[in-house]
Nucleic acid binder design. Sequence first.
DNA 1: CTTTAAATTAGGAATAATTCCTAATTTCAA
DNA 2: TTGAAATTAGGAATTATTCCTAATTTAAAG
Lengths: 133, 133
Amino acid sequence: MNNYSKQREAILDVMKEHLIHPTAEEIYYLVLEKEPQISKSTVYRNINILVELGEIKKLNMTVGPDRYDYLYKEHSHAICERCGKIFDFYYDFNKDEISKELLEQIGNNMDINSITIYGICEDCKSNNKNKEE
Amino acid sequence: MNNYSKQREAILDVMKEHLIHPTAEEIYYLVLEKEPQISKSTVYRNINILVELGEIKKLNMTVGPDRYDYLYKEHSHAICERCGKIFDFYYDFNKDEISKELLEQIGNNMDINSITIYGICEDCKSNNKNKEE
DNA sequence: CTTTAAATTAGGAATAATTCCTAATTTCAA
DNA sequence: TTGAAATTAGGAATTATTCCTAATTTAAAG
C-alpha cells in the first residue's frame, strides 16, 4: 500500500475543494472532471484508504449513503436523523474526561476520533407538526 | 400508520430481550423463533417504524450494516471505526449547552437524540502496531 | 537507464443491504 | 357488520459497495 497515484491525489484535491460532505458517488462525479478515465471502484478504494490514513473522515448517516468530509479544521458534526442534513460546528468536548470514563466503564482505552450529535432538525420537527397522526 | 401488529410487537420484544446491538438481519433471525411466518421485509419496515417512533435507536456504523439498540436506560455509544465494536457507556453531556451552541453556530434548534463517540479501540490500535508499514 | 516486484488501475461482475411491489389478510372505528 | 386503512409475506428490484482480473504504473535496486 501507498505508492503514489494521481487518482488518489485527485480525490483528496476534490475533498479539499468541496467541503460539502459528498457521498462516494458525488466524489466520483467531481473527480471525473479532473480524471476522466477514473473508475468508480478506484474512487471507492481510495476513499477507504484516505479514511484509513486519517486524511478524510467518514460520516455515518442514518439516511442515505455514507458521506465524507475533509477536516480542514477540527470540528464536530450534528446530523439530522430524519432528513440527513449535516451541520458543522465547534464544541470543546472534554475528550480527556470522556476517555477516562470510557476506560473506567468499558475497560478499553479508545482513541477518540470524533463525536457526532444525532437528532432532529428544526425543519423536520415542524414538518412533523403538520402531519396528521 | 400504527395499527396493532403482532409482528411489530415481536420485534420490539426481541429488542428488549437481546441488548446486543443486533443488525436488521440478526433481528430477523431472532424474531423468526417467535413468528416463524414473518418475512424479512416486514422486519425491515417495522424496524424503521420503531426507530421513527423512538422506541429503538439506530446505530450508524462505519463497518458493516447498521445496528439497533433498545435504550432500556439512557446511555451513549462509543464505536470502533475499524472493527465495529460498540461500547455502551454513561456520560453526562451538557446537552443544553450543546443545543445552545448549535443554535448559535448553525442557526438551527435541533432536538438532540444521541451523542456517539467514534474512535479506534485498544485491540485495533495494538493490531496496527504489529503491522509492517 | 533497465529490470523487477509490488501497488494500482479500469471496467465490469458479484455481493450485500435495503426498499419496493402486489395481492391477500388483519385491524379497528363507525 | 362492514369497509377503509394498515399491514403482511414473498419475491423482485434497487442501491451501495466490494471483489476480480489483466494491464499499467510506480519506485527502488542494480
